[in-house]
């Protein structure tokens, strides 16, 4: 029994780390960190809706994250406000709406687990959804890897060269929404963005190509997951924060020996 939940925790963490590597690279390259936070905040809205409507939590969270991503895309098109202002409005109004909706339900959810994750409590069913979601996102990123790179380097150039720019942006946002939603259980909404950003930042120094950076980020993320769960096992520290801390330490170790660039 004891081994089972640990194996599930390790598997769930590794799945997230694998997809977070390449996705996190785009977040770093495109400076979308704040967008990840916004998606994470809106996850609470999904939880509240799942309780009100009696549907699967993960499905509801994925749906609400995707909805917020779509709202952002349509608001961005009007360009009436700067994107970071829009993100702030979306993030906090969806978080507030989630909290208000939660007060209408009888269930009392564990806010701590929501904020910081509850990796050791991952069920077999949740692991399946994470695995499928993670695999799907990896496949989508691999399929559109070169077009997404071209888009990131110069949007108009990509457009002149015939790439469907609007669709690619949407794909990236939806992948991000799905990853944030399925990884909520692992590190919690407050720490999700860090797991997307720290491994690519650590891998950047050693990478010669975008692919190396993505794979390196995946590897560093996996190592951080193993170290974090190990620390949590031996020293009884909270799992999610331990993983993030391990990633941060790996980043520090990587940046220590003499600045190259």
């Amino acid at each position: 029994m004891m081994a089972d939940f640990l194996i599930r925790a390790v598997l769930a963490g590794l799945v997230l780390a694998l997809v977070a590597g390449p996705l996190g690279c785009f977040i770093v390259w495109r400076r979308m960190a704040y967008f990840g936070d916004t998606l994470a905040h809106s996850a609470l809205l999904g939880i509240a809706l799942s309780l009100l409507l009696q549907v699967n939590v993960q499905v509801a969270v994925i749906a609400s994250c995707c909805a917020v991503a779509l709202v952002l895309v349509s608001l961005e098109k009007r360009r009436s406000l700067a994107t970071d202002t829009l993100l702030g409005i979306l993030a906090h109004s969806s978080l507030a709406l989630g909290l208000v909706l939660l007060s209408f339900t009888d269930n009392r959810i564990d806010l701590m687990a929501f904020l910081f994750g509850d990796l050791l409590a991952v069920s077999a069913g949740e692991l399946w959804i994470m695995g499928l979601g993670g695999l799907l996102c990896c496949a989508v990123l691999a399929r559109f890897w070169n077009p997404l790179l071209a888009l990131t380097l110069h949007q108009e150039l990509a457009q002149v060269e015939g790439l469907p720019v609007a669709r690619l942006r949407l794909i990236l946002l939806l992948v991000m929404a799905v990853v944030v939603a399925v990884s909520m259980k692992i590190v919690g909404v407050l720490l999700i963005t860090s797991l997307l950003i720290i491994p690519p930042a650590a891998a950047r120094r050693f990478a010669q190509s975008p692919e190396q950076m993505a794979l390196g980020a995946s590897a560093i993320g996996c190592l951080a997951v193993l170290l974090g769960i190990g620390a949590s096992w031996f020293w009884d520290t909270p799992t999610g924060p331990s993983i993030v801390l391990a990633a941060a330490l790996l980043y520090l170790v990587g940046s220590l020996p003499g600045e190259k660039s």
């Binding site: 690279c25 770093v28 390259w29 790179l149 990131t152 380097l153 110069h154 108009e156 150039l157 002149v160 060269e161 690519p200 930042a201 950047r204 990478a207 010669q208 190509s209 975008p210 190396q212 950076m213 660039s261």
Partner: peptide, 19 residues
Amino acid sequence: GYMPQRLQVEATMPMQVAR
């Protein structure tokens, strides 16, 4: 063939000319 005004090369993205 379009040559944009400036390519803001993100220093965080390792990218070789050939690639």
